[in-house]
């Protein structure tokens, strides 16, 4: 790439100006105000807020349900990507089309629908309650269900393009050399899709930790049981306790940052090659 040579394409000033102005207004200035406000917090107050048992338990609820949901999505997403790439069957186009429904459907709409379905009077909830004695809505199981819903597209859409690009020759070579299908999958295909799988998992996990709309209805929001961290930020804000809200949010931002960094490290360890996946 040319580094210092001036480009002859016009419009740099204009496009750069527009980009920076809008970026500043929408992202940078609000972000700075977060930093400024944080700097005014006293550390003891911050520490006191984030170590309150109710808040620690909310972090745990958010992280544990998001982790379980993301793991389930990783497994199901891998299977879905495999089925969509490798098999032909009637209705395949339809399935491919609806996978992105959780992106298109407003989270609050998904939330109320899932809640109604899984209460002990709902179509699904009644069955589980009467047959297994399991409550879904207003428990952590319910939160996990909502998070599975919103995380479905992440893993499929990360793995699918990679699986499509795998050269069939490697599999043929493995089979000719005497490996069975299971070994071929484990040693040839899986290592190829692993980076995409990890990044899809990470995105689903990070998204799930911060999710609010779909979870808030199904959670029931009982303190220590089904209260999620974003909800606590919301309730602190409604009481105009901005310092507490910001403290809780900072820890969540730190968690998101750690998750994304771990992903970045894993990507470089696992793939050790330049790939177009983010």
């Amino acid at each position: 790439m040319k580094k210092t040579r001036k480009s002859i394409i016009p419009g740099f000033g204009l496009s750069f100006g527009v980009t920076i102005s809008i970026l500043s207004l929408v992202v940078l200035i609000p972000l700075c105000s977060l930093v400024v406000f944080t700097a005014q917090l006293s550390f003891s107050e911050f520490w006191y807020t984030i170590t309150r048992p109710r808040i620690l338990s909310a972090y745990w609820v958010s992280i544990s349900t998001a982790l379980v949901a993301a793991l389930i999505n990783a497994v199901m997403g891998l299977i879905m990507a495999w089925v969509l790439v490798r098999y032909d069957f009637p209705g395949k186009k339809f399935i491919d089309g609806i996978i992105e429904l959780p992106f298109a459907l407003p989270t609050a709409v998904a939330g109320i629908s899932l809640t109604h379905l899984t209460t002990t009077n709902g179509w699904v909830g009644k069955f589980f309650y009467n047959v297994f004695g399991i409550r879904i809505a207003y428990t952590r199981l319910g939160i996990t269900i909502a998070l599975i819903f919103i995380g479905i597209p992440f893993v499929v859409r990360a793995v699918q393009p990679v699986l499509e690009k795998i050269d069939i020759q490697y599999e043929e070579a493995a089979l000719i050399l005497g490996a069975d299908r299971k070994t071929t999958f484990r040693k040839v295909i899986f290592p190829e899709i692993l980076p995409a799988l990890i990044s899809g998992f990470t995105l689903a996990f990070a998204r799930s930790i911060g999710e609010y709309g779909s979870v808030v209805f199904i959670a029931g929001n009982t303190p220590y049981e089904t209260e999620i961290a974003p909800l606590l930020i919301m309730s602190e804000l409604q009481e105009f306790d901005y310092a507490a809200a910001t403290s809780i949010a900072l820890v969540m931002l730190a968690i998101a940052f750690i998750i994304l960094s771990v992903n970045a490290i894993l990507q470089s360890v696992v793939s050790r090659r330049v790939s177009g996946l983010a």
């Binding site: 977060l34 609010y212 809200a245 969540m252 931002l253 998101a256």
Partner: peptide, 22 residues
């Protein structure tokens, strides 16, 4: 910075605007 908004929880997005304009 352009990609940042989608990685932030929507509640935190709301919070930073409250801090900016509150």
């Amino acid at each position: 910075f352009i990609d940042l908004p989608v990685t932030v929880s929507p509640i935190i997005a709301g919070l930073i605007y409250v801090l900016t304009f509150g």
